[in-house]
């Protein structure tokens, strides 16, 4: 009996220990749940769908773009509501940085003081969808695109503006920070920009070939005729604030290395207001339209002119 009692006591002790451990574990689990699950909002909920439309619109006016986009995803009616308000807002900057494994989108709004990080996307399609929506509606003062690898840029552009997609970019300035040969890609983006809005295209360190959108002028047509496209890279920097266009002609030697062939720094009459031309301070290496003709005559040596093109240009020049 005594042995049995002792066994029972041991059993009881063991059971109580096990129970105690279970209780402790359950406490720990509860604590963990409390720590790792999202705390409920401290405020009582607002019945947003029951709110008067005037108040809803006023509330949205006080939301930054990021929160508006979050609200847009809540329901169809909110999507419509937010989209209507997006047209009235302006973004100082939209920064698009394309990396190997991610795409960063940053937006800066004047009313909300300071730039805020919008989102990092790992999927180009998702980033493209959001960016399409923002740039179509929000008037952006400066869209900055930065990328250092051509295949990343192409992959993103394929997602952003696929064939037949009606993409529009409402930006006043485009800054192209793609330090590589990306003329075709820039042209693709420029084709999306709403042309009546854009006042400045700043291209930094890009080798641009045949950028006819940027230089849609008689002068540019002439340059195209003078420089065979396959032999030369053309780097253009267009500063509307200075009313100056800098064109770097860069050739490739036998070893495949680049050398600067020619630099033209000029105003492009068709790109700026004609009234402003005379008042611009033109540094040493600046040519007027007439002087450029002289320069080009010099460059004519050794170049094969297409007679038709030449006579056409000369005809246009005489008209000018």
């Amino acid at each position: 009996m005594g042995v049995l009692t002792m066994g029972e006591e041991l059993l009881c002790t063991a059971v109580s220990v096990v129970l105690h451990i279970f209780v402790q574990i359950s406490h720990l689990v509860d604590f963990g749940k409390r720590c790792f699950t999202r705390a409920p909002p401290s405020l009582d909920p607002i019945d947003w769908p029951a709110m008067p439309r005037v108040a809803q619109e006023k509330v949205i006016d006080y939301l930054d773009i990021k929160t508006r986009y979050a609200l847009r995803r809540c329901s169809k009616s909110d999507q419509a509501l937010v989209e209507r308000t997006l047209k009235t807002i302006e973004a100082e900057f939209v920064f698009l940085k394309i990396f190997d494994d991610k795409i960063d989108v940053d937006v800066m709004q004047k009313t909300f003081r300071g730039m805020f990080y919008f989102k990092t996307f790992t999927c180009p399609n998702e980033a493209a969808m959001v960016l399409r929506s923002i740039l179509k509606r929000v008037l952006t003062k400066n869209l900055v695109i930065e990328c250092h690898k051509i295949h990343n840029l192409r992959r993103f552009l394929d997602a952003w503006a696929p064939e037949g997609h009606n993409v529009k970019i409402r930006t006043m300035k485009l800054t192209w920070n793609c330090q590589m040969e990306s003329a075709r890609e820039l042209r693709r983006v420029l084709a999306l920009v709403q042309s009546d809005l854009v006042t400045e295209v700043l291209v930094n360190d890009g080798f641009l070939i045949n950028l006819d959108w940027l230089m849609r002028s008689k002068f540019w047509n002439l340059l195209k005729a003078v420089y065979p496209h396959q032999d030369v890279f053309i780097d253009i920097q267009k500063h509307c604030s200075l009313k100056v266009v800098e064109i770097y002609f860069v050739g490739v030697d036998e070893n495949g290395s680049c050398y600067k062939k020619e630099v033209l720094r000029t105003e492009d009459p068709s790109a700026f207001n004609e009234d402003d031309v005379d008042s611009i301070y033109l540094p040493r290496q600046t040519f007027t339209f007439l002087e450029i003709t002289e320069t080009l005559k010099r460059l004519e040596v050794g170049l094969q002119w297409d007679e038709e093109e030449k006579s056409s240009w000369l005809g246009q020049k005489n008209q000018v």
């Binding site: 509330v59 939301l63 609200l71």
Partner: peptide
């Protein structure tokens, strides 16, 4: 309205739905 906007500033769609009692479609 400013106060209401402050309630959801920087929140995710799920959090906004919860705070503003927005039903899903």
């Amino acid at each position: 309205c400013k106060q209401v906007a402050m309630m959801v500033k920087g929140k995710s769609p799920e959090e906004i739905r919860e705070i503003w009692m927005i039903p899903t479609d």
